[in-house]
């Protein structure tokens, strides 16, 4: 038990630190996936099987892949010439260390933390489903609404400049300015929009006209 905890904790911490400190962002994303896997193993060790597998599905399967997509779409995969940390990194690290010290002090001085392990619980998936469908049905619906809103919002945010990038191009073509670099993001936007739209199923292009009109008004 102790050895398993030590191994999992060391693996998770090392990969989390690597995910936060490596220069190459793709390596960071892979280390992040390892850290999430370590956390899933920690959940399994704590007898929370359902949460462990939800962690594997949601974090390793979706969030880490989403991070990889974002890294590749923003072309930040290649190493940058300048420093990867901000100028005020000493203050940031100091704040983090301070927070850790305060948390550790509070944890060690608390009487709750000395509690020993009670008997092994037996929460079955059937029980969780029962609770979700009876007592927690309202939060479940709210979460469903939130996820729908977030998905539609993400799609709209990520693609609302697709037409307006074309619009900008048209405007610049009319005015005779050469903004050659605007042509590059158009293909990028298309790839991104299709990748997100394929996740969410059919997305009608009905959202375009409004932002485009706003964009043109702003451009004037």
């Amino acid at each position: 038990m102790q050895a398993a905890f030590a191994i999992i904790a060391a693996l998770t911490l090392v990969s989390a630190i690597a995910a936060m400190s490596l220069r190459n962002l793709v390596h960071c994303a892979l280390c992040l996936a390892v850290a999430f896997a370590g956390l899933a193993a920690m959940y399994l060790q704590l007898d929370a099987q359902f949460v462990g597998f939800a962690q594997v599905l949601v974090y390793i399967g979706a969030v880490a892949i989403l991070v990889v997509f974002a890294i590749l779409l923003t072309r930040s995969g290649q190493p940058v010439p300048h420093s990867v940390v901000s100028r005020s990194w000493i203050a940031g690290v100091a704040i983090a260390v301070l927070v850790f010290c305060v948390l550790t002090r509070v944890i060690l001085s608390s009487s709750v933390s000395q509690r020993s392990l009670p008997a092994k619980p037996s929460p079955t998936v059937r029980e969780i489903g029962n609770q979700l469908m009876t007592w927690y049905v309202l939060p479940l619906q709210v979460i469903g609404l939130l996820l729908t809103a977030a998905t539609i919002g993400a799609v709209i945010i990520a693609m609302n400049e697709r037409k307006s990038a074309g619009g900008d191009h048209r405007v610049t073509a009319d005015q005779g300015h050469g903004h050659g670099h605007l042509a590059a993001p158009t293909g990028l936007n298309e790839g991104n929009a299709t990748s997100i739209a394929s996740e969410t199923g059919s997305e009608s292009p009905a959202h375009y006209p409004q932002p485009e009109r706003e964009r043109e008004v702003l451009a004037k």
């Binding site: 704590l46 550790t104 944890i107 060690l108 933390s113």
Partner: peptide, 27 residues
């Protein structure tokens, strides 16, 4: 005991906080 998990979690939180405060890349 419980505090092993709590301290590990605090360490993970501090690592995430340090990364969020110091890295230049928004991702």
């Amino acid at each position: 005991p419980l505090h092993y998990y709590l301290i590990f979690s605090a360490l993970l939180f501090a690592v995430g906080l340090a990364g969020a405060l110091t890295r230049r890349n928004a991702i």
